[in-house]
């Protein structure tokens, strides 16, 4: 009996210790978001006053958010982000899926060489190709266009690799059955492989969209015009702008930029977490 009491006491202590430790790390993870939201609804004088309140004494949210939305084309940043990310992903699929299918399931000369090339390509960080991509786009007069944001990314060795690994796990019998049913190879890709590969495609999609929505390096190089900016570049331009000197509107702007992915994440947490960790482990 005394043992039992001691065990319960130990157990309760463990529960408390776990929540205590996790509360600290959770605070570390979330505090920038809390700070951002707090400042985004505060008037300037409150931001600068010595004592700090999480919730403002005078709510200035409407003003801050309307400044953020009018002083910079925030809505354009978001639309550009959506358009660019969606286009990149679709083109990536168009290129990657047939290639991955061929690498996984068809026998042809040069297959091993091509796969080796894909593996080598995986090692190359995209930033290392910025100069030649810039030159290429310059030569074709495409700098500072949507094309400049999209074209360098439409070949994804990572996407090919990921889909190839996934397709390899699909049993050959399924494909042979489809062939006996009279489907051509491209029909097999479209009607058999893609439906089977939905989890992998979703994972790759989440990975790709998150990467390009948040990318700052390449838009900084490829784009000069504000109205073509993607979200990450947009918020930077907004900060360096006149209105961005005020912290309230700046934090409102940051909130607007961060919100879409965060909201999407909160709605489909498991998909996002699976998607991103799945892509990392393959």
């Amino acid at each position: 009996m005394r043992d039992l009491v001691r065990n319960i006491r130990v157990l309760r202590w463990r529960v408390l210790a776990r929540h205590g430790a996790l509360a600290l790390t959770t605070l570390f993870a979330l505090i920038p978001f809390v700070w951002m939201l707090s400042l985004s609804v505060k008037p300037p004088e409150e931001i600068f006053q010595p004592e700090f309140h999480l919730w403002p004494q005078k709510f200035n949210g409407l003003e801050n958010y309307s400044v953020a939305l009018t002083a910079a084309p925030m809505h354009l940043f978001l639309i550009n982000g959506l358009f660019v990310c969606a286009t990149i992903f679709l083109l990536q699929l168009l290129v990657c899926v047939p290639c991955a299918y061929a690498l996984a399931k068809l026998r042809f000369r040069g297959r091993d060489t091509l796969f080796a090339a894909v593996l080598v390509g995986l090692l190359v960080p995209p930033q290392a190709l910025a100069i030649p991509h810039f030159v290429l786009l310059h030569v074709f007069g495409l700098l500072d266009t949507y094309a400049a944001l999209i074209l360098p990314w439409i070949i994804s060795t990572f996407g090919i690799f990921l889909m190839r690994q996934f397709f390899r796990a699909v049993p050959d019998e399924l494909i042979d059955a489809a062939r006996l049913d009279g489907l051509g190879e491209f029909e097999i890709i479209w009607r058999v492989m893609i439906p089977v590969a939905v989890p992998a495609i979703a994972a790759f999609g989440i990975f790709s969209v998150v990467a390009h929505w948040n990318d700052l390096f390449w838009p900084l190089i490829a784009i000069r015009s504000e109205e073509l900016s993607t979200p990450a570049l947009g918020i930077l331009l907004f900060r360096d702008d006149e209105a961005g000197q005020f912290l309230g509107p700046l934090m409102a702007g940051a909130t607007i930029i961060v919100a879409p992915l965060v909201v999407a994440f909160l709605f489909a947490q498991q998909r996002f977490i699976d998607g991103i960790s799945f892509t990392a482990r393959t």
């Binding site: 948040n214 990450a232 961060v258 965060v262 996002f272």
Partner: peptide
């Protein structure tokens, strides 16, 4: 996981 998703430039 929230920080992983968020746009680093803004954060």
């Amino acid at each position: 996981f929230l920080p992983v998703m968020s746009t680093m430039a803004a954060m």
